[in-house]
Design a binder for these strands. Sequence first.
RNA 1: GGAGGGCUCGCAUAGUGGCCGAGUGCACCGGUCUUGAAAACCGGCAAGGGAAACCUUCGUGGGUUCAAAUCCCACGCCCUCCGCCA
Length: 420
Amino acid sequence: MIDLKALRENPEAFKASQKARGEDAGIVDKLLRVDDARREAIVEFEKLRAEQNLLSKSVGAAKGSEKENLLESAKKLAASVKAADAKRAEAEDAAHKAGLLIANLIDPAAPVGGEADFKVIETVGKPRDFKAEGFAPKDHVEIGKVIKAIDIERGAKVSGARSYYLTGPGALLELALVNYAISLAVKGGFIPMIPPVLVKPVAMEGTGFLGQAAENVYHLKEDELYLAGTSEVALAAFHMDEILDQLPIRYAGYSPCFRREAGSYGKDTRGIIRVHQFEKVEMFTFCKPEDAEAEHKRLLNWEREFFDSLEIAYRVIDVASGDLGASAARKFDIEAWIPTQGAYREVTSTSNCTQFQARRLNIRYKDKKGTKPVATLNGTLVAIPRTIVAILENHQQKDGSVKVPKALIPFLGMDTLVCA
RNA sequence: GGAGGGCUCGCAUAGUGGCCGAGUGCACCGGUCUUGAAAACCGGCAAGGGAAACCUUCGUGGGUUCAAAUCCCACGCCCUCCGCCA
């Protein structure tokens, strides 16, 4: 939810933000109108209600025929109070619904444009030169078969397209990555969490996933629950309706993630780059709004450290306005080099959601001036399938085996994944 | 799935139709006293909207009533017992 006061004071900023996202700017004016109507209805109702409260009190004190007379007018008043209340409820509902449609105000520092208009902030490491080493790299599907780490055929047989089994070394690799990521997170002061992934509409809506992103969410109609696409949902909602007194609070959530991948037909159909279910360790921070920007950099740095230690070339991009989620004011992605694609591909993503989610979820803190929504931020520490892709492809050797990056060896218990 | 008990301002509780937005204790914050602390005493202390008057909120949503924390209905959550499953 955006700040309605800020909207009233500067609607142009919100229109510009909507435009930069490639979304409807007209809903800004519409929201202003319904918000006016809402406030009018509230004033009208409160006026009548105050009158009724007064009158009611005098009824209790009165006696005899005076009481009869008072009762008479009180009854009439009760009817108009009821009507005004209904009108108020309707106006509030309309304003609330209109409010939910507007995405978070974009950080003016974010590059404006579509998916392709990102800015490269930094490129780290050099893509490995397989030509110089004298062999052509295999893609992760092939390597996965050779070392028996990934079984996509059987994944499709059992669960359909975009499903897979991690087998033997693949399964061990996931566990090692998760343990490594969690150990780093704990060292960094994050509280590790294993959150529910089955969540209520309020959590989904509060984190901004029921707008534009709704088609990518699994919905269990029978139970009116959703399968979350990221533990961000349950971590954000953890403190719903609370007033937090020590900030920042940092959690590292480990959970499965579910994505319908609607509208991505034909994209990344090979391998495990884009799948319906995967595990992820996600960082999540609640902090003061004024600390959010610095915290965003911190989350990015933790992501960077993680990828540095996997010895994989990557770049960091500043995601363009048109490619931001509804909740994000700004987003940085890490893209790892994928040799067989000759391209950098997204492996992590960190978003500054400013006070947008906290306003919807009613998560606040107190300072001298009053109670205000906190800021929330999230960032991927490790998303398993894409990280496995990056490791297998970047660390493959001529003989078909895969070298394990040093940092991961203690967690995996071996330094090479060999051909089965 | 069945039976019962509960849900009030951080915690514990009081409150069975108007004097209740709501008392008390603990915790917390400020002050007096003290070398300092404790104790004692005094004051403050739920949230939201509003410039204010005032309005809203006693799990949630409906209803009855001039008036609901209080009466009625539905739902949610927690606890106990039974059944079922592990």
